[in-house]
């Protein structure tokens, strides 16, 4: 625990991060930027878990273990997503999300 910084301050930060991520996911056109937005979302949740563990339930370690797994899974997710983006780039010569419109309706 850090002196002078309460649990609400951390929640404000993590909520801001989460919704900046959601905003970026919806508005950005570049696939790599959308991936960064997803990273923001996942890291916001990881902060949430650590803070809840540290401030509210310091007797267990569930939250911190959970955040480590979130980081690990996020890394795997980004690795696969990047591979798919590269595959998409090879067929479309672009990483713009507007190009992915072959199938709709």
């Amino acid at each position: 625990m850090i002196q002078g910084i309460g649990v609400t301050d951390f929640f404000i930060i993590s909520t801001l991060m989460f919704f900046i991520g959601v905003y970026g996911f919806i508005t950005r056109k570049n696939l790599i930027t959308i991936l960064i937005a997803i990273e923001l979302i996942l890291n916001a949740v990881a902060i949430n878990f650590v803070i809840i563990n540290k401030y509210l339930y310091p007797e267990g370690l569930h939250g911190q273990i959970f955040s480590i797994f979130i980081i690990a899974v996020a890394a795997a997710e980004v690795a696969i997503a990047i591979a798919i983006v590269i595959d998409f780039y090879r067929t479309n010569k672009s990483v713009n999300v507007d190009e992915s419109e072959m199938m709709k309706y």
């Binding site: 959601v22 067929t91 199938m103």
Partner: peptide
């Protein structure tokens, strides 16, 4: 082309829904 596009749509949407789901778990 269609195959890459399908994978793209699946992984991005799966990632954001799992993020929202994780927020709920927290």
């Amino acid at each position: 082309k269609r195959s890459a596009e399908a994978a793209l749509k699946y992984i991005f949407l799966a990632a954001i829904t799992s993020g929202i789901s994780l927020l709920g778990i927290s």
